[in-house]
Design a binder for these strands. Sequence first.
DNA 1: CTTAATTAGGATAAATTTGTCCGAAATAAG
DNA 2: CTTATTTCGGACAAATTTATCCTAATTAAG
Lengths: 144, 144
Amino acid sequence: MFSKACEYGIKATIFIAQKSLHKTRVSLKEIAAEIGSPEAFTAKILQSLARNGLVESHKGPTGGFEMDRAKMDTLKLYDIVNAIDGDNIFVGCGLGLKHCDANKPCPVHDKFVGIRENLTHMLKSTTMYELASGLDIGLTQLKR
Amino acid sequence: MFSKACEYGIKATIFIAQKSLHKTRVSLKEIAAEIGSPEAFTAKILQSLARNGLVESHKGPTGGFEMDRAKMDTLKLYDIVNAIDGDNIFVGCGLGLKHCDANKPCPVHDKFVGIRENLTHMLKSTTMYELASGLDIGLTQLKR
DNA sequence: CTTAATTAGGATAAATTTGTCCGAAATAAG
DNA sequence: CTTATTTCGGACAAATTTATCCTAATTAAG
Ligand code: FES
Ligand code: FES
């Protein structure tokens, strides 16, 4: 469904948000350890998310990653997936035709669009705050 | 969503089924031309589908691929996806945890399972006959 | 100012997926 | 029996994704 990069990106962002609930910055090392991802690869992903303003990064001692409380409400799962994997999963044809076009549909079009919309709606309506909270109260987990 | 191999496999199978509606066998070459896929790569995929009994193959002159009318009713989109991409998309965790477990859910579990089930249900309830028919009457297309 | 800690970024490597090539095996037809 | 046509199967190659390594830049603190 999502690329490895995207899975790591989502998990890292949720973890950053959770720590930010307690005003705590978190380092790359902690993140990789917590979510069970390769450190250097995770660095690349976070770099990209930081450049695009999805998370905030700070260099030097006491540096690390964080996220405003306000950002947690506005930032949706959708934004992370879109930033890392692009929009193909949201608008692309299920059978890989160049463009999904209801007027010239592929054989699965009618069956596929509903699922694509479900997914898009779910991702667009899920906030980071929501996910970070569930993790914070121990309802969910990032590793296994 | 699906791998390239799976996209090609689905399109090839639908085309084979459509031709079989008219008792016509189709060769690898025709299939690749019709669905716009690399011939040799498509051959690998069809080989695998044939070995697993999803389609029927015949060597020699007048050979090619075909599908019983009965098979078209029993064979679901699900079977093709499962044969090529495996079941990860149907049972796997959206964030890549080793096992999806409702008792130890990842942060997106509750939001994700519904979509996964929608997809699974759609694929399990869509027959090859249905897809082949839509193509046959010109309602849908395999290339663009 | 110096040091240590941290992210940024480029180069490279490994793994996986996608794609190609070529000869073998089967088989229909003359 | 010979030939032409087609799928089968193995080896290989290219492209993409995933992962690693190393150095530079930034910055907090003594
Ligand atoms: S054309 Fe294929 S999903 Fe719309
Ligand atoms: S545990 Fe992640 S989707 Fe179920």
